[in-house]
């Protein structure tokens, strides 16, 4: 839905001018630590209303309520995945309620929020792009991972490292990075995987005026499902390479940039890049 109808300009315009648009994650709304009791009660009411009216009441679905909060219609996601289908549904609702276009009620903003971090943390931005197929979704997946000072210092290496010096990174650190290298699938939880191989090596390429360039390279192989709790998950195989730049003794953070050299999920290819966010943009 995100890369399909919910990105279509005709639909985004219609949602902004005629509706109150909201998305609700079942993952968050069933978690007492994330969502308040009042919100969870309203969430439960969505499905209860649909069941009461003998309408589809699935978890991955579009529900439209009238302005008084009464359920008007509900559609399973498969019925509105095509842009034209969702457009007709929205048009039908606009006609039914005689809604007049108005101003956007909330200003659009980036939906992926950078996690709060200590100034000594290194924030890594992950982006994965895949052609649809093999159970993957089209579009892009992105997320942030924080490395604390102790972690990123292992990548940077000892202060006296010289060109040619090479070291193997701890498996736990390699896996904390590699665990996000998988295409968008229905199994959204990055912890739901089994590693078969994970190695990450650092090697100093050059040191000039106290600034070192360190080559990073590694290989990973892990199982990751197409759907949650997949009993026969597909295999992610990837070769990763890139570099980091760091000024010795500087108070600034290193700049880390990595990319998959090759990456496959089952029989299909995907691309993943990892780059540290510029500290000045935080």
């Amino acid at each position: 839905m995100r890369a399909g109808p919910l990105s279509d300009p005709r639909i985004t315009k219609m949602l902004n001018e005629y509706f109150v648009p909201i998305y609700v994650s079942n993952t968050d709304y069933t978690d007492e630590e994330i969502t308040s009791a009042e919100e969870r009660a309203l969430y439960d009411q969505i499905f209860a209303s649909a069941r009461k009216m003998n309408k589809p009441a699935g978890l991955v679905q579009v529900y439209i309520f009238d302005s008084k909060g009464n359920l008007s219609t509900s559609k399973h996601v498969k019925d509105v995945l095509e842009v034209e289908n969702l457009l007709s549904l929205l048009r039908e609702q606009i006609r039914q309620y005689g809604v007049q276009p108005g101003k956007m009620l909330e200003a659009p903003k980036p939906q992926l929020v950078r996690p709060l971090s200590e100034t000594s943390d290194l924030l890594l931005h992950f982006a994965t792009r895949v052609e649809p197929g093999n159970g993957t979704w089209p579009g892009i997946a992105e997320e942030f991972v924080r490395l604390n000072r102790q972690d990123w210092q292992q990548l940077v290496g000892p202060p006296d490292a010289e060109p040619g010096n090479e070291w193997e990174l701890p498996k736990e650190l390699a896996e904390s990075i590699f665990t996000r290298i998988y295409p968008p699938t229905g199994a959204y939880d990055p912890d739901e995987h089994v590693f078969h191989k994970s190695s990450l090596t650092a090697r100093v390429i050059s040191v000039e005026d106290g600034t070192r360039i360190v080559a990073l390279g590694g290989e990973m192989s892990m199982d990751h499902g197409i759907r949650p709790r997949d009993t026969s998950p597909s295999r992610v195989n990837a070769v990763v390479t890139g570099y980091l730049r760091y000024k010795n003794g500087a108070s600034s953070l290193p700049q880390i940039r990595l990319s998959t050299f090759s990456a496959t999920y089952g029989d299909g290819r995907f691309d993943n890049v990892i780059y540290s966010e510029d500290v000045t943009t935080r």
Partner: peptide
């Protein structure tokens, strides 16, 4: 729902599992 009442607009709710902000 409050905004819907206030502005007389239907409410479009998309429910899903996971993290749509991440594309996952």
């Amino acid at each position: 729902f409050d905004l819907g009442r206030e502005h007389k607009r239907p409410i479009f709710v998309f429910t899903y599992s996971g993290h749509i902000d991440q594309g996952r």
